[in-house]
Write a protein that binds this DNA or RNA. Structure first.
Lengths: 299, 299
DNA sequence: ATGAAAGCGCTAACAG
DNA sequence: CTGTTAGCGCTTTCAT
């Protein structure tokens, strides 16, 4: 023991696992680490894992199904005790390797098929709260902007938005993931003579580009166009007017995912379970009722 | 081989390493994953590591020296090929475990002692460019705000700021890491009758709080106080006026760190080497010359 | 060429 | 309770 101290010896986790069968590594696959939401998720997870004696192998799918499939397979070579995956789209089931994992929890985005342990937010309700609010403020037409309906979150948000819109007219615009394409499509839509009087963007990356585009076109907010975002980032509270946004409980999601994974790792054998967490909604200046519009207003 | 396909077999990396001695795991220790700069660093690194056939063990020191020391030791149980560390303060050398690592590169923050392979930015030059700019715009006194001079980046930036300030008077204010304490100290300083006419904050977390504090106090920017930030985040381009900021080449830092680590892993045996990368500076509205101040201005 | 055997660092099982 | 031994899944080496 004196020599252990002296030389700074630590046992080889792998050799240990090889013989004992006790795994102390977990994996997390995310679409993109630079997304602050996923970074926060990983950060919380890392701390929870450590508390339970696990280290975390972090892998990015770079938002591409092919890389996700490759990484989902390759990560098995580390024989992790379990895996948490935020899939890059709904097609996860088809990309899972034959051998499977000892434990698997899917977070944030819901796969099209198959029964996984799942942790997600109440997308439809929260999106509905936004459109209901916009309608109540007197807006008549709303452009709803999302990357693609192939992502479950976008689909659920869109459907929730429609269900609660009342007499407000909604139009969906899918803009994809490439920033310059997003910008071009938004600009084209917002430059139309009969543009919508409200814009609701369904993820924070799109929200950023939408906000910049509105500023570029010199539109008054909310006078010319109201604005709301699903998913909140810090700049939304700093700009004037501040932005109405749905805020997701990222840390709770990480906590719920890890808890579920740990129960699976401890061998609990029950049906796949879905946890839905509640988003909070912050109504701010960007979506308040316009002062009854002066019809003689220039432009 | 047919059976390999059929069953989805992948070789056990650990058993493989145990016998062959070839390691395919690398570690990264960061102070805080929710910091977008570190998240971007890890993201780039993960992709570079994968290209070279390595997976990445990600560990957070939660900005506390004790946890850093513990993690730096524990991570050795995985027998990584090498480690990249962004230290939480200058005292890294004392926290390195006896046994050491096969390869180690220190990034972003410079330890007080010992010779490490090092990748950092040209803090002093970039900070000097900001104070020189503020002085050239006619500002006379500048409050420089940083977390603590125990962090090398803060120290280097402060020293660079002083060196280039010319006749402008500088004062350093250390505010620590706790957000509510930062806010309180800043508020106290900015409420003084003889407040500085420019504020330069040395990291983006402090910048955010400083910006909010200036807004809370209803100070006009740059009329009442000019503002500049070391380290740029996206909101700085969105607010009005947009914020003058030093932008760090995070991806280049990750690239340089990984390159250096790979050379060490391949057994290159040379003196420790320091790489300094160049920051770019974006002058924006928050620090432009005030229109010659009206002495009869209210307040 | 293909096949058998030894051993990486550890832990578990068993013997003294 | 302490000491020895076998073997986890691989790769390397040595023998055929």
């Amino acid at each position: 023991m004196a020599a252990v101290e002296e030389l700074g010896y630590v046992a080889d986790s792998n050799a240990s696992r090889l013989r004992s069968g006790r795994h102390s590594l977990a994996g997390i696959v995310v679409p993109d680490l630079t997304n602050p939401m996923f970074a926060a998720f990983v950060s919380t997870l890392e701390s929870l894992a450590r508390d339970d004696g696990f280290d975390l192998l972090v892998v990015s799918s770079a938002n591409t199904p092919e890389q996700e499939a490759e990484r989902l397979n390759a990560i098995r070579s580390w024989r992790p005790a379990g895996l948490i995956v935020i899939p890059c789209d709904g097609g996860l089931a088809a990309r899972l390797p034959r051998g499977g994992y000892p434990a698997l929890v899917v977070a944030d985005r819901i796969p099209d098929e198959a029964a996984f342990d799942l942790v997600a937010v109440d997308n439809a309700r929260a999106a509905g709260a936004i459109t209901a609010h916009l309608a109540s403020q007197g807006y008549r037409t709303c452009l709803v902007v999302g990357t693609t309906l192939a992502i479950s979150n976008v689909r659920e948000r869109w459907e929730g938005a429609v269900a609660a819109a009342g007499t407000m007219t909604l139009q969906f615009l899918d803009v994809g993931l490439d920033p310059s394409a997003v910008r071009a499509r938004l600009k084209a839509h917002l430059s139309r003579p009969l543009r919508a009087d409200a814009l609701f963007s369904l993820d924070h990356v799109t929200s950023l580009i939408a906000y910049q585009t509105i500023a570029d076109l010199d539109l008054d907010m909310p006078g010319d166009i109201a604005f709301a975002s699903f998913d909140e980032t810090e700049w939304m509270r700093l700009v004037r007017p501040p932005i109405t946004a749905v805020s997701q409980p990222v840390e709770d999601m990480a906590r719920a995912s890890w808890k579920r994974l740990m129960r699976r790792i401890s061998g609990e054998d029950c049906d796949a379970e879905t946890v839905r967490l509640t988003c909070s909604i912050a109504i701010r200046g960007s979506s308040l009722r316009r002062s009854d519009k002066d019809p003689s207003r220039p432009d």
